[in-house]
Each structure stands twice: as C-alpha cells, then as structure tokens.
Design a protein around this nucleic acid. Structure first.
Lengths: 342, 342
DNA sequence: TATTAGCACTCCTCTTAGTTGAGTGCTAAC
DNA sequence: GTTAGCACTCAACTAAGAGGAGTGCTAATA
C-alpha cells in the first residue's frame, strides 16, 4: 500500500513527465505546488517507488521516469476527471452542425477533430456492416454478359459487386432471380447471408433459373470480401511530433501496422463498453510497445456499434484523452440516435 | 555540346550514385569498366561538367553528385531501355491470374506490386467516375422518413447516398420520381448530372411530386462529393528505406501531402499519354523538392483513363521504373480491354 | 523516529583538439 | 592532350576534459 506522500509524488512525476518528456528530479518535484517536504525526502520516497516498480531511471544518476506499472497505477487510481475547455467542446459540436445524414461523413470528421484536439493519431471504426440486415436486392445488367448486384441494408449501407452473366441468361431469368432473392432474404444479416444463400436459396434458384451458381458465388464473395467495417484515420503523422518517435523505425512500424486492416481491428475490444486503456506492452502488438492505446465504443442506432481508438506514446495525456473520448462517445451516440428517430 | 568522354563520365556518375547514394570520386570512376583514362583526366572533365551545371559537390573536397540538370540530361539522353527480369514480369502477370472482374481489385493489387518491385511509393488513380454515364437510378426507402438513392453507371460503378424524405411523401411519389429520373437521365455523365438535374429535371419533378427539392439536393451532393477518382497507394512507408529520407520532416511532409486528395491529384498530368518524369523542383509542390515523380496513364475501356505515379528520391532508378511502368501500363490497358469484350 | 542538509559520486552532454582518409585542384612532366 | 605527383580541404571519427543535473548515503536535527 502506498502512503499518501508516495501517491502525491508519483502523481507529480507522471504529470510532469507527460508534459516535459524529461526525467523528473527531486529538486524539481520539491518546487511543485503542494509539495512541503525536501528533495532528500523525495529522493528516499522515489527510491522506494522505484523498488516497488512504479518508477525507472534512464541511467544511474538521472531523474525518474514512470514505468509501465507506474502509468497503470496512475491511470487506475490517480486520474482525476478533467474538464474540457469550452472551445474544444465547441469544436466537437461543430461535427454535428451540418446536420449530415451520412454516418460516414460524421465519423470521418470526428476522426480529424479528435486527432487535432489530442495531437495524437485517431482511428474510428464505422458500424459493423456484417450486422446490417438486407433491405433490398437488385441487379442491374450492364452489358449482355455482365451485371452488378446491389444489396441495400436496413441502415442505408450499399454493397455492390459486378459479376458475369452466363451466356444464356435472359431478362426474365434476371427478374425471377431478383424476386426470389427479395422474397427469401429480406431481414437476413450480412454475416448470415452466405449461409442462407448456399443453404436455402441456391436450391430454389436452381429450379427456376439457369446457371445460378455464378451469381450466388459473386454475391457470396461480395459480402465476404467487405466483411470488415470501414476504418477512418485522423492525424496519421501526428506521432512525428512526439520526441519518443524521433526514431524512424518505430514510426515506420506503427504506420505499417495502420495499413494492415487485421492489425488495426485487433486494437479494439468489441462488445466491451466504457473506456479501455492499454499501456505499452499491454498491447498485443510488438510494434506498439512504446504506445498507449485508448479505446471506446459508441452506438449507431439499433445494436450497431462503432469504435474509437487514440494512439499516442505511453507518455500520453491520459486525463485529457479520456475526457475527450467520453464527450465524443456520448455525442456520437446521441447524434445517431437523433438521426434515426428524426 | 558534351564530348563522348563527358557523356560517359556523367553516365557512370549517375548510375553509380543511384545505387550507392554516395558522392562519386575520380578514382572510383577510373576503375569502372569501359573507362580507359586516368583519375586526373576524369577530375578535369568533372570540373567542366560541374561548371556546365550537371554535377555538384557536397563540400569542397568531396566527390561529385548529379545536379537536377544532370538527372534531367541523364533521363533525356542517357536512358538506355532496360529489360526487366522474367521473375518480375511474372509477378506483374500474377495480378491478372485471378481473372478478377472488379477494376478496383486489379488496381489495388497493381499498386502493391509496383511498390514492391520498385521499393518506392506507388499511387494509382482509378477511372474517373465523373465520366461514367448513368445506367439506372433507384431509390430504396429505409424508414418513414429516410431513403437511399442509388446511381449505377455504365461501367458498373455504384454511387449512393442517404437523404431525408419529406413528411408527406408517399410510395407513389417515390415511384413517380424514380420513373422521371430514369426517363430523363439515362446516359448523362456524372459530371453533367447536377446541371441536368437542376436545369431539366427539377421543373418536371416539381410538377409531379411534392417537395422534390430535398431529393434533388441530396442527389447533387452525392455526385459532387465523390467527384475525385479513387486513389490507391502502395508502399507508403517505402521511402523510409532511402537514406535521403532519414530526415523526419521530409518524410512527414510527403506523407501529409499524400493524405490530401487535391495535392495527390495535382501530381498527375491527365490527358498526356506516355511516361512523364518530374525531377526535384520540377514538381510544383515544395514538399517534393527532394523527390522525382514518374507518371503514366492507362486506359480502362472506352475513353476511361487511369493513372500511375511512382514517387522516389531524385536518386531514383529511372531506368527500371520507366521499364516497369511501361509494362504495367500495357498490361493494365490490355486487361481492361479483354475484360470489356469478354 | 522521521526529516533534512551536506557531500561524494555517477553519468550524460557539450566542447575542443587531434587524427585519418577520401577526394580535389593545380603544376609540371610525359 | 594526358597523367603523375603533391599540397590542400573537409567530413567523420576518436579522445579527453569541463560542466551540470541528479543520485545515494551519512550524519545532524527536530
């Protein structure tokens, strides 16, 4: 159990290091407001805190730097909620000024504003298209041998894909096919679609329409392929500002990670509400060992969910980011609720 | 006019510097195959070439480095066409193995392979959607007050956008509207669409349908907004490999430029066929003063055009990149022709 | 007993000086 | 016209020393 004084010192060190990025010395701490004891006392306490694993030194005679355990403790126990500047709140509100209908635009704008306000990198996940339900199928023939299949979902998302028509395919075949699809598949979620297509619809189709296989195949790949939710980035190069990322290799690894959809997806914890903080090696990705990732989710009507992540150095301004994410999450959720009931 | 010997020396220097990234000295040149004269002679020639502006020194007693003028001359007069490794050709061909129907997949794959083969950054522009023609309109109502408008183009591209339905809008209104749109606008190109909508269709619509303005507005913004052709990147972080980009600021500026659609668009010269090379400050963007950009175009059926750009340091392997782009351009053009006539 | 002043010690950082080596320009000989 | 020779330049590296921020420990103090 830490004493009050130790808590106080740990807090000062983390707070100071977050803004200065420099090891914090005892003299420096003693000059802080609220600190009533001498540098020597602080040195003793720091030695204890180091022994307990909350602090580290960069070399034998340097000041102290928070360890991952130190950040973790800070985040869990010392994070007093912070108010956000009214100017910043205004900027967030400006996302919703335009009365945009499209989910995508709102999310894109949110990503940019979040990265601007935090000066870190933001990643926003759009709604998980897989859980949308089919609202309407249609097929538009383009030429004698190609056509494009279109699926509209209940949330207004549109998936489409071109496919080849078999040579003996007629307009009436097409019409029959569309009718069958619309009869059978309305309300099926996209994630279940390929099952339904193959199990239920294929047999019926084959009875009424010649060579339906190609079409079913195209439809299956169309819905399989775009399985991931869309990803929006803000401030991709913001990390260049951080002194800990003056190493080209680190930056490169993180940028490369962000180009890999699967890696980005795994930064999030779907189905967990609230705000989550992963510090340094708590992240599963090796590339992220110098980063902290703060994530949260927001809802987009129904049971649809989106997610937000902020990526910064472990020396991140947790207080501010948590506060901003909290506002953002609520505002987005609210905006999409209003949208729906309009 | 340069003497043969000067040409020879300039060529050796550029060729050498392209692979080594180190200033080239007279002794080093004298050891190259085909060089029969002594370092002292070479030094004299180099002094002349420097006076003529083709070479530069990094400091008074360093070897020589090509100037921009030197690269320009090299590119214009010394670029012997290079054969490409059969393994590389095979890799390019692999793009077309899958017999993909979708233009987008082919282009995406091409971007990746180009960046891999060159170890530079590649940017591919997809077809200019603005020149597609309307094939079919449809509107799918989602709820009592929202609907999604869908435009399918002759090339199988699908644009869509949600909009709000006026409160007194009925299903028959919707049907009428769609019919009118399909009667009047089939065959209109997307770039002319908003004109046609406002000039021709709006009046007709207003006669038959209540409060059509909102819808027209949504349709106009839908087609305006996605006006740019899609951009695909390959090897965004490849430039980290180049020693000239060990400076964080340079890399950052270029990465930021690549996030700005308008800036990226202006790298290209639409409507100019063949291969174009911009060296260093020949690029209009200040961020690109250390880069060379090689661009070309390919055709996607009809009069549709796509474009390719490779971005690397001015010390780029022009020979190889030009050869690769040439193959790529032809293969893409051919692939899309085959696709259409299938 | 808890706190603190004092002091020796550590180690990073910055500066200066010296060495090495690759490369040049110029001159004079071939 | 070409080339060998030589003095000179300058970046890059190494070594040594000064300065300074900060620590840990000891002993004095409240």
């Amino acid at each position: 159990m830490l004493t009050n004084r130790q808590l106080q010192i740990l807090q000062v060190i983390v707070d100071d290091f977050i803004v200065s990025a420099q090891p914090v010395g005892s003299r420096q701490i003693s000059k802080k407001q609220g600190i009533t004891f001498s540098p020597a006392t602080i040195r003793n306490e720091m030695a204890d805190l180091e022994e307990l694993g909350f602090l580290e030194k960069t070399h034998t005679s340097s000041g102290r730097v928070p360890s991952e355990k130190g950040y973790r403790f800070y985040v869990d126990h010392l994070l007093s909620p912070q108010g956000i500047n009214s100017k910043d709140i205004q900027q967030i509100q400006s996302i919703f000024n335009d009365r945009l209908v499209e989910v995508e635009h709102i999310i894109r704008k949110s990503a940019n504003i979040l990265s601007e306000l935090t000066s870190y990198t933001s990643i926003l996940l759009g709604p998980d298209v897989q859980r949308h339900r089919v609202k309407r199928f249609s097929i538009v023939p383009l030429s004698s041998d190609t056509a494009v299949a279109i699926i509209v979902t209940n949330n207004g998302h549109v998936e489409n894909r071109m496919f080849n028509l078999p040579p003996d395919f007629t307009a009436s075949d097409l019409e029959k096919m569309v009718n069958i699809l619309n009869e059978r598949l309305i309300g099926v979620s996209l994630e279940d679609l390929h099952k339904s297509l193959e199990a239920e619809v294929l047999a019926v189709l084959q009875q009424h329409v010649r060579s339906a296989d190609d079409f079913i195949h195209a439809l299956v790949t169309a819905t399989m392929h775009n399985s991931e939710s869309k990803i929006f980035y803000g401030g991709k190069t913001n990390m260049f500002n951080q002194p800990e990322f003056h190493d080209l290799n680190k930056v490169r690894m993180i940028l490369d990670l962000m180009e890999t959809t699967s890696q980005v997806q795994s930064l999030f914890h779907p189905n967990e509400s609230g705000i989550h903080i992963r510090i340094g090696s708590e992240n599963k990705q090796l590339e992220m060992e110098n980063c902290s990732v703060i994530t949260t989710t927001y809802s987009i009507g129904d049971d649809q969910q989106g997610a937000i992540a902020i990526i910064g150095p472990t020396r991140m301004d947790y207080k501010r980011v948590v506060a901003l994410l909290d506002i953002m999450r609520l505002d987005l959720t609210q905006a999409f609720m209003k949208n729906r009931s309009e």
